[in-house]
Design a protein around this nucleic acid. Structure first.
Lengths: 133, 133
DNA sequence: TGATATCATCCGCATATCCGAATAAGTGAT
DNA sequence: ATCACTTATTCGGATATGCGGATGATATCA
């Protein structure tokens, strides 16, 4: 088991301010949460996630749905599985993907709501460091 | 106003399956949500977000907190602002950052819970395409 | 005006990420 | 065994992202 993955609120924080303790205080834990968000930070993976939200989906179905190369889609799906967003079940030569935890849908709904409120700002964000959007 | 940012559930979907409509169906909207998640997909920005969660924070405070160059931190903060996660208030020569919407905290809590359950899997994820972790 | 404090932007560089194409690996049917 | 079908992995190349350091811009104060 990996250590320090609880949000944790050690005694020695910033003086005079409460620590919300939403996110792990240790760099390792934060890196993990960041990785999780990066897994959600690709339009294709979001499309796959939503595609699987309506029921178990086969790999080939996914390839047809997102219209990318089979290899690329397989990698995206593997990423979603190892990041805990999808589960995979093998049956014969096919792989069947589905949402791992229904709370993911809540997460997506909430994010969508926040994004919708700030859509134009976000669209204008050149992100960190200068780079074409 | 940008178009097509509602989750939307157009009539012509996949046959025989309900469409959850969690995420915008159009590529533009999905790209926006993905961008939002990428903004959350950096450990430093997560640290800054949590830092500002306990109250208004000045830019210089943030620099001291995350221990990166001032320029880098300014860029991270700007990214968080334009992605709708922080708001900034100017006062004299200082910039004061705070959380824009309390629902962000719920988002972080929920994500943290999901990550904690799959920590080892996520840690082992080489992410998409081969790349050192 | 000149010095200092604070924040924003630009530069070059290193790494991460995404992509298609090719190829490997496993399953099932003939 | 051989072939077809599905999934997984590797490769080279293009773009995105993060970093420090230098520089620019603005506000405050002597």
């Amino acid at each position: 088991m990996l250590r320090g993955l609880t949000p944790a609120m050690p005694g020695g924080g910033a003086p005079g301010r409460p620590r919300p303790g939403l996110i792990p205080a240790d760099p390792e834990g934060r890196r993990l949460v960041a990785k999780f968000f990066r897994a959600l930070g690709d339009p294709t993976r979001l499309a796959l996630l939503e595609f699987c939200a309506s029921g178990e989906r086969q790999g080939t179905e996914c390839v047809r749905h997102v219209q990318l190369s089979q290899g690329r889609v397989a990698t995206h799906l593997a990423c979603l599985v190892t990041c805990g967003l999808l589960t995979v079940r093998r049956e014969g030569r096919s792989a069947l993907y589905s949402i791992r935890d229904p709370r993911e849908l809540e997460l997506l709904r909430l994010s969508q709501a926040l994004v919708a409120e700030q859509a134009e700002e976000i669209a204008s964000c050149t992100r960190v460091a200068t780079s074409p959007g």
